[in-house]
Design a protein around this nucleic acid. Structure first.
Length: 591
RNA sequence: GGGGUUGUAGCUCAGCUUGGUUAGAGUGCAUGCCUGUCACGCAUGAGGUCGCGGGUUCGAGCCCCGUCAGCCCCGCCA
């Protein structure tokens, strides 16, 4: 028997194939042996197709069917037939057709699988250990297809718009700011190390100096930080840079790109997206990636509290802090325990405490802080909150950072809990005018919010030396349903300004020379104004696949401890390898 | 680095609150019966280091201590 393996995909067989002889190949996904007749579903990437063996029609094929084991690989030749009317299965795409094979060959046997494919309850560590089996599942296969479709759409859009895809190096020089680098020891250079890129940032800017004008890359990036459901040590960015552009040019381009990417997932979105300034996002939503699918906006009561006799709040305002509030409707019947839980939640978010006003259904208004407030102040709060019977208003007083963080998270908590979020919405927006610096209490200095190549807002240049906290940048993030999809900025293209930016970050002249000399000197040879954006592909695909773990859209991800459970990486290095790399281990590693 | 949570059959879990006979269920697997199933059905069977180590106890899957591993979160992630 000479079979060609395959000329038709299982999932694509239709009534149009009836009477035609075809060959299919795939995995025997389910075998139903009824005694005198055997049904087998053959699965390939495209879907399932039922084949039938009847000893009266073909004895030798029937005998082969009797020996089939689940997940063995077969190739089958035969003529497609219509199923009898009463056996049509409307739940399957190929449920109206089937085949009595004239020939069947087992191409590969299969031992019993360690778990059942498509069983959603199987624990993830088992799935990751046998990832090659997990990929056979409909869910994983669909996610990989979706990812492919999205990347294809993005590439198509960028190619059509005259972008050049350029690869940048993976072995690069370590940079001082940002996440922890993965280091690669150099064999050739004793004691020296490469770093893996956290992003192609510097290279894409130098491509602009090189005259590429419009660049993109589906770029692997690496960060040696602790993992989360949406964070992997290696991940993929759609990395984009453009010359001769201003902020609006980048935003318009990215909007067009995202429209195409969403379309690949059968989601229609409208451009242009809303725009919020960073200030406005924080003031109204307590977040730089606000979920604006629901209300519950924050409001400021600092002025009222500053004039109260409540020292805890008053002193915060005097010391430069702020008091903000959020109104949660319909929870005035909260029990003592509910209130305790809410306060503990606020404390877990970083608050020192939580104050509130309860507007009871019967019209009574209660609050532990009323004794510190005048009648007029109490009225002011009710008016500002637009409080109705049944509402509770919560207050947090602290530094702006803490207040926004706590109330922003409480807002999300109640939005979810009270079912205020419409999960059918696709809410895309830009947050613009990010601050250039933020103060790091840990490092006791100002650090870049974005990265040190971000252009300061020209209006704020005079604050670069003495008022760093109030310098705005030309930087922007794109947010989808409260998730950061990506961000970018207009970059510095003047060597003098770049030098000043490094200095403002507290880098010493030696550090600037050692780490960035090539960049500053590159800028001296004629540098176009440029800017760009990077979009997190894994997160985008995960959101469009409606899964909350990016591991579900990565073929071979690491687990939460940054291990590959399938290959057991990272592994040990041999003595010889270590010697060649000029390394000596402090402790003998566990085998 | 910190907090929470889970660990019992190949897989998913019950049993733990209140320590006590031979540790169960579903599913998968094997065998047999079954000619239109599609979560096929019926029957029989195999399958266990109760994560690991120590302790308390006459007796520990269950209580205590330690440890390892998985997942989630905080820190961290320009």
């Amino acid at each position: 028997m000479e079979l060609a393996y395959k000329n038709t995909n299982c999932g694509e067989i239709t009534e149009g194939h009836i009477g035609k002889e075809i060959e299919i190949a795939g995995w025997a996904s389910t075998i139903r042996d009824l005694g005198g007749i055997i049904f087998v579903e053959v699965r390939d990437r495209s879907g399932l197709f039922q084949i039938v063996a009847d000893p009266n029609k073909n004895q030798s094929v029937y005998e082969t069917f009797q020996n089939l084991k689940t997940e063995c690989v077969v190739c089958v030749k035969g003529t497609v037939s219509k199923r009898p009317d009463d056996t049509i299965n409307p739940r399957h795409a190929t449920g109206t057709v089937e085949m009595y094979p004239s020939e069947i060959e087992i191409l590969s046997a299969a031992v019993t699988l360690p778990f059942i494919l498509d069983d959603e309850s199987v624990s993830e560590d088992i799935r990751l250990k046998y990832r090659y089996l997990d990929i056979r599942s409909e869910k994983m296969m669909n996610n990989l297809k979706l990812r492919h479709n999205i990347v294809t759409a993005i590439r198509g859009h960028l190619n059509k718009n005259d972008f050049l895809e350029v690869e940048t190096p993976i072995l690069i020089k370590t940079t001082p700011e940002g996440a922890r680098d993965y280091l690669v020891p150099s064999r050739v250079h004793d004691g020296k190390f490469f770093a893996l890129p956290q992003s192609p940032q510097i290279f894409k800017q130098l491509l602009m100096v090189g005259g590429v004008e419009k660049y993109y890359q589906v770029a692997k990036c690496f960060r040696d930080e602790d993992l989360r459901a949406d964070r992997q040590p290696e991940f993929t960015q759609i990395d984009i840079e453009m010359s001769f552009v201003k902020q609006d040019d980048v935003l318009n381009m990215a909007e067009g790109l995202l429209v195409e990417a969403f379309k690949a997932s059968n989601v229609e979105i409208q451009a242009p997206f809303k725009r919020l300034t960073y200030r406005e996002a924080m003031d109204r939503y307590g977040s730089d990636k606000p979920d604006t699918r629901f209300g519950l906006e924050l409001f400021d009561v600092s002025d009222i509290m500053a004039n109260s006799t409540f020292d805890a709040f008053k002193n915060v305002v005097t010391a430069g802090g702020t008091v903000r509030a959020i109104k949660i409707p319909g929870i005035a019947n909260y029990s003592r325990k509910d209130m305790d839980d809410t306060r503990n939640l606020a404390i877990s978010f970083g608050a020192k405490g939580l104050a509130w006003v309860t507007y009871m259904e019967d019209g009574e208004v209660k609050s532990p802080v009323f004794k510190f407030l005048s009648e007029e102040q109490i009225d002011d709060i009710a008016r500002r909150a637009d409080a109705q019977k049944g509402d509770i208003v919560f207050f947090v007083a602290d530094s702006p950072k803490v207040v926004f963080d706590v109330l922003g998270r409480l807002r999300l908590h109640f939005g979810e809990k009270l079912g205020l979020i419409n999960h059918d919405l696709h809410d895309l927006l830009w947050v613009v005018d990010f601050p250039l610096f933020e103060y790091s209490t840990e490092d006791d200095r100002y650090v870049s919010v974005h990265h040190p190549f971000t252009t300061p807002n020209p209006e704020d240049l005079d604050k670069l030396q003495n008022d760093k906290g109030n310098v705005r940048s030309i930087a922007y993030d794109v947010v989808y349903n409260g998730n950061e999809l990506g961000g970018g900025s207009i970059r510095i293209h003047s060597p003098e300004l770049q030098q000043k930016a490094f200095e403002a970050l507290g880098l010493s002249e030696e550090e600037i020379q050692e780490k960035f000399e090539f960049m500053i000197s590159a800028f001296k040879y004629g540098t176009p104004p440029h800017g760009g954006i990077a979009l997190g592909l894994d997160r985008l695909v995960a959101l469009l696949a409606r899964t909350n773990s990016i591991r579900d859209v990565i073929a071979f991800p690491k687990n939460s401890q940054a291990k590959d459970l399938m290959t057991n990486a990272p592994g040990n290095a041999s003595e010889d390898q270590l010697r060649e790399l000029h390394l000596r281990l402090r402790n003998t590693p566990k085998p």
